[in-house]
Write a protein that binds this DNA or RNA. Structure first.
Lengths: 320, 320
DNA sequence: CATAGCTATACAAAAGCTTGACAATATTTG
DNA sequence: CAAATATTGTCAAGCTTTTGTATAGCTATG
């Protein structure tokens, strides 16, 4: 259980004592004599501890019970303490610690494999667990950039070659949609942030691309209204009106032979007007290049490009 | 986070006290000493609180019960408090004094109105906030039963009469889907729990019903794989195979004149076999009664009935 | 006009703090 | 090996902070 609230938790010494199993007096003695923990203080002078401190004291307690001298190990880091204990008895299940950025990118690749395996195995629970762990270990940024983006690209590819079925995609979308909650929570956005609607046009049932776009935009500080897949132009336009959005992003990942998509795009642009930017992305967007150019659409070439467009749009004041 | 509806919410201290479980005197003391809440005042000087304040006090109360020092956490934001408590659910088994059940049901009605207003206003952010607060205040059970179920019914009705547009439904689904994360987290299910696949058949694009069914089943202890809307029978069957599910629930909320739905149901039943229960629900399910009876489907009559069916199925050992 | 709210002050129990001391073990050292 | 020294867990005394609750007199609201 890696806690995200290390900097949030605020305990007084009695709680710490109960949780760590080290008596209050001893906690103070360890601090006084060896700076084993260095709690902050209230204005009145009471010690204030974090979850880290508790974890630390727990480990120190175990180590001393195992015969180690407190004066020798008091200043060890959490990791050192864990190692210390691991080698003796399998007292504590060890947790990995995060490293440098490059380490994390490497780690992400590891996660991609695991996650993809879970997708293939259709194991939603495992997939979600991997995502959660990755999120903690990699941080939101790296998670999106080096895990989610490549993973979804792979899934898209394999889906086209028939290695994966549509259900795989549905299942994955489902998990990621519920993850949105954490992602959003990590990045509260300002009230005056620019607003955007994200969806897919009618006939386009694959939402992974749109989902990713929504997440990226949210991380970039946009207020995103995500509407899922398969919406007719009028509905999208209505959402734009309702939210007073400055941009609409739609994802097109599948070429249909009929003329639905071009028609929808023309209608949508007409309905939302020139004030609102229309961004189109997705694997199959290139297929409709003619319409896109004609109508005046921002055609995304990859997620890096999408980010650039977002920055530009955010920089420009609303043209009103 | 200035929500439009905060302006509407006006509670006096006694109400706040009842709902949050913190005595009036203490609420004032927390304000005076740590600015834990900062209510506005009437012209006469009486404190006026918002829903946010109530949620906040409730969380603070819980946190202090878990050993946190009030002086240290008093100024945390709602999100910070939620994070703080997320990892600690086990510490204090919910001894929450949340008032009697009937009180909560009454409260839920209040929330229904607010949530519905947010849906009409297409205000996703406010809707999500209300959901979150309601979840804290009502508890998962009451939340599902007395807020979510009736709310979705209302939305369905209004959608049919044209008062709401399809986008409203999409937006609401989107929010609820992301909430799934919390709901699931509150109810970890056993590894040997019976498994179920939930989705809607091809042509059925409305997922609210399915979503609710998924949530209810999860609360009942099932391991649910939710697949979103609009899946052909082969895909659903594949998911059943993959997950080794004991039941499939599909929601049909819209009557199409063509024969797609009956055909899909027949095919689905044939594909999954008799071992796997096929549960069909949704507003328009009755319309296809003939097929349902012919094929041997469990036709849900309301959510109470659904619960019963779930219990029965869970009780029967897998027929293998 | 009664109920519920407000301010201000007070109080007491619980929990903290510091300092310093004291045995009971370890560890060094002569 | 024994004496000297260091380490370590505990305690106690005396004082302060935190925190929930209570009292008293006055005021707003329905």
């Amino acid at each position: 259980m890696a806690n995200l609230n290390d900097d949030l938790a605020r305990y007084l010494i009695s709680t710490v004592s109960k949780r760590s199993g080290v008596k209050s007096d001893l906690v103070r003695a360890w601090e006084r004599r060896y700076q084993a923990v260095t709690p902050t203080r209230t204005t009145g002078g009471h010690r204030v501890y974090t979850d880290q401190d508790i974890a630390r004291l727990k480990l120190l307690n175990q180590a001393t019970n195992n015969g180690h001298s407190i004066s020798q190990i008091a200043q060890y880091s959490l990791d050192e303490l864990k190692n210390l204990l691991k080698n003796e008895v399998e007292v504590v299940p060890a947790l990995l610690s995060a490293g440098s950025t490059s380490d994390r990118v490497y780690l992400a690749e590891d996660y991609i494999e695991k996650c993809y395996a879970a997708v293939v195995a259709f194991d939603a629970k495992t997939l979600e667990t991997h995502f959660e762990n990755a999120l903690v270990e990699l941080g939101t940024e790296t998670f999106i950039e080096h895990l989610l983006t490549p993973l979804l690209t792979i899934i898209g590819d394999r889906w086209r070659t028939g290695e994966l079925r549509p259900v795989h995609e549905h299942m994955t979308s489902s998990i990621i949609r519920s993850l949105t909650y954490i992602l959003r929570n990590n990045n509260p956005c300002a009230a005056d942030a620019p607003r955007m609607v994200v969806t897919t046009p009618i006939g386009q049932l694959h939402e992974l691309g749109a989902l990713l776009a929504a997440i990226i935009a949210e991380l970039k500080g946009w207020q995103v209204t995500y509407l899922g897949a398969n919406l007719p132009a009028e509905e999208i336009a209505a959402a734009v009106k309702f939210t007073d959005a400055r941009a609409v992003t739609i994802s097109i990942s599948f070429c249909t032979d009929d003329l639905v998509v071009p028609k929808e795009i023309r209608r949508l642009k007409k309905l939302i007007g020139v004030e609102v930017a229309l961004i189109v992305g997705g694997r199959a967007a290139g297929h409709y290049k003619a319409v896109l150019d004609e109508v005046g659409v921002l055609n995304i070439q990859g997620y890096g490009h999408f980010r650039e467009i977002l920055d530009e749009l955010a920089a420009n004041k609303p043209a009103t």
